[in-house]
Design a protein around this nucleic acid. Sequence first.
DNA 1: TCTAACTTGTGAACTAATTCACAAGCAGAT
DNA 2: ATCTGCTTGTGAATTAGTTCACAAGTTAGA
Lengths: 208, 208
Amino acid sequence: MKRIAESTIRRLSLYLSFLEEIEARGVRTTSSDDLAKLGGTTSAQVRKDLSFFGSFGKRGLGYSVPELSSSLRKILGLGRQWRVCIIGAGKIGAALARYAGFAERGFIVSGVYDSDTSKIGTRWGNVTVRDEAQLERDIAVNNYQIAVLAVPADAAQKLVDRAVKAGIKGILSFAPLQLNVPSDVALRTVNMAMELESLTFALTNKGD
Amino acid sequence: MKRIAESTIRRLSLYLSFLEEIEARGVRTTSSDDLAKLGGTTSAQVRKDLSFFGSFGKRGLGYSVPELSSSLRKILGLGRQWRVCIIGAGKIGAALARYAGFAERGFIVSGVYDSDTSKIGTRWGNVTVRDEAQLERDIAVNNYQIAVLAVPADAAQKLVDRAVKAGIKGILSFAPLQLNVPSDVALRTVNMAMELESLTFALTNKGD
DNA sequence: TCTAACTTGTGAACTAATTCACAAGCAGAT
DNA sequence: ATCTGCTTGTGAATTAGTTCACAAGTTAGA
């Protein structure tokens, strides 16, 4: 398959959320123009994005909502369950552990890990905080594929290395630094500082 | 000024975080190659990014760490304080209200807003949860420039409209949907579903 | 002073992503 | 059967972003 742009994937994810919304409202058919309006893009962009993966619509008619959403779920790898662990039981880890959005999308969070002995053993929602020392063993035993990293910057790289060595293949990091992973491990980083600074840049340079 | 790519701004923010780190360790001088290695990019990219804003280095020598970090702070609009409110006192709002990173960067969070009467009046760290009904008045009185939105998808657009009408100029949203704002308001969205789905896409299509 | 070793800043070349524009296909009306 | 109105899918054109490659500037050492 030709290499697909990251921006295309992010838009597919957005289209899927619209499709799910209108499907719940009983809408059966939609068009590239509808999707474009909802997603703040153009109909040509929508069609081009989809065209990398096949043809899903009918000329003159548009797209079947259930068919297209099902296709997108398959493309995005959502047709299955993903086993997820959260590393770090601080504020962000706590918010994530209780985040309902995970389960809705097929992400099963079955462990939160921390090294703070006062937290280990406590229950959060329906997961228990476990000893970070057992991370490697649990990754192997529970067959976690994805780790969500919510620890301070200075602890992050070491934990990533351990998780990768133990077999983790995807990492979503909230740590405010650049992480290094082998090329066969997928990494996405959410960096609050970066988002805020791109905002302040825009506010400061408005009108240039 | 020529239009600057969003990707350039995000890298500048990354470079700044490295500069601050090595400055704290006493390093006085660095090079485009150092910054590139730390940021996972190339030295040509670093120099090109900087070149949009001026020339900050000395040929043969590199960059003065304090000078460059000061220049980047100015470019990114961090040479001043920003007044921020958090809308939504749920899990994410709670994590954000206590996030130390805000103050370090000059972001002053002085209000958290929610409509849940059982939360209104409670103190979180050093801010108090206030009644969402007072949002407009407080935006005007406290002169908030940035709103961090941490509410469910179905409440988000209405609150954005209210905040914008009351004078907010920048929004960082954690709500999982596409928001509409006038073109003079800067919007950044952190969408967990999108990040996770771009991960699962990568994991599913590995090796294509 | 001259040379060697570096490193920046930047046009030019290249690569990637978006937008254009239109042929082709579908459904309903006449 | 044909026409009309609509919408997809996709090469081609365009625009945006990255990488190359090198002249020019700086320091240290001979």
